[in-house]
Design a protein around this nucleic acid. Structure first.
Lengths: 251, 251
DNA sequence: CGTTTAATTGAAAGCAGTCAAACTATGTGG
DNA sequence: CCACATAGTTTGACTGCTTTCAATTAAACG
């Protein structure tokens, strides 16, 4: 009944419990949230800047990213959403979306009515705490991204974002042993790091040449995790994921 | 009783009501929050990265900034806090601070016990909504900052951040007519925009030479608001401040 | 298989950084 | 009130990391 293995909102549930366990009652309330399940293709927009959304979407599986486009048409990716992420906590309490969300891969998305989730957050303290914590961790990641694009050179930026993916994916059991499938193109990686795709390519080759990573298509393998972290000035503190939450994290 | 004019938490109160009015009962609860008032010098740290804070600090007056330092010692400023800002909503629900907060000017700071504010947020829906909205707007500003350092050139970055200050300060009645006192040095401006102080200086002179701004010490005057916005690719949407909230905003 | 998208590589140009020094304001102590 | 110290601003010359532009190769897909 409270099993979250195959339930569409199971991944969301697991994420909510990352920072503190929920009472059984609350878990039931979350899993019983009304929702509509959809399957959408890569590239689909979940939210567009300027929208007034009425649903809070949850990524059941698949990947997505937040983005904004500048006046001259260049794009900045602001965050990568992984399975279980609630895509618009933002829009649950603000009326107009300030950025767009687009699918990186074909995905299953659950639409939860804004008011239903809002009510849980405001009336169930444990759920409210969990949702606020998720929001704050997302803000923390944003701060680190500002540092990344503002104060690190290209090589550090790429190494850093690879480390971030590694830890986040491992913490959800979505990574392999010392490696993971990068769910984005080099151009998207460029838009996430404030670089050009050409330069991202050169940097990736450089990291590979220096033996920090090896690649097979989009799969990134890091044999020397410590060295990769050093190259990216990476410390996992800002992710607020304790060591124990990470599966098979080795040093 | 519910007057917030001279109360230390008055500015916080006004900010909480930016997005929706609070019931009188809730306003009373906020103003009655236990707190200790301190006066601190410019440069004082309110929070240090790695701290486990027990207080939530509110800037009664004065300015502060969030920052992180990279491994090689360079600094990135992540946000500028203005009077009324709750400085560590982050730390209210997360146990370890992921960044530091430092005062820009001599300021009065109110320390509110973490638990007292937490309880209000979790038990009073209107207060919870208001606090969550503030958190989300801060995240929205962070997203815009990622765009700023990631995808705009130096001139656009500086023009953009000047526009942001203008709107935020005007919305609190802290700006003059088409101008405001910039509470930071060019070096700090550089650390906020991912540039060097040398280049910030050149850009400022450039904006001045082009007639977009004029400066008298730290005071920034913009005679052509529209042109400054264009130069900075600025749109106020991400601030989630409605036009009406801004005092004397003219075009 | 042909077509499209993504990855790769090379050469040249440019924006911003680095280094260094001069200048200005502000503040302090004698 | 002046001499000096300190912090911040301004300016110039040079360097270099990244971008831009353009073309080629490789992979994915119907």
């Amino acid at each position: 009944m409270t099993r979250s293995q195959d339930h569409p909102l199971g991944n969301l549930m697991r994420q909510l419990e990352l920072y503190s366990k929920l009472p059984d009652e609350d878990r039931r309330l979350v899993l019983n949230l009304p929702h509509r399940l959809r399957r959408l293709d890569a590239g689909s927009y979940l939210v567009r800047e300027g929208d007034k959304p009425t649903q809070c979407m949850v990524l059941v599986d698949g990947f997505a990213f937040r983005q904004k486009v500048t006046g001259d048409g260049s794009r900045q990716i602001l965050a990568v959403c992984i399975p279980g992420d609630a895509v618009d906590l933002q829009n649950m309490f603000l009326d107009v979306s300030d950025h767009s969300v687009q699918l990186l891969t074909q995905s299953h998305v659950a639409d939860v009515p804004r008011e239903a989730l809002q009510e849980l957050v405001l009336t169930q303290p444990a759920i409210g705490t969990a949702i606020i914590q998720l929001t704050l961790v997302e803000a923390s990641i944003l701060r680190e991204w500002v540092v990344n694009v503002g104060r690190r050179d290209a090589r550090e930026r790429i190494a850093h974002i690879l480390c971030e993916f590694a830890v986040r994916l491992e913490s959800r059991g979505l990574a392999g042993d010392h490696g993971f499938e990068l769910p984005m193109t080099q151009e998207q990686l460029a838009d996430a790091t404030g670089l050009t795709s050409v330069h991202v390519n050169r940097v990736l080759k450089g990291l590979e040449a220096d033996g920090l990573i090896s690649r097979k298509r989009r799969y990134i393998h890091y044999s020397n995790w410590r060295a990769l972290q050093d190259a990216g000035d990476f410390s996992r503190r800002y992710l607020h994921i304790s060591e124990h939450d990470t599966i098979a994290q080795t040093y």
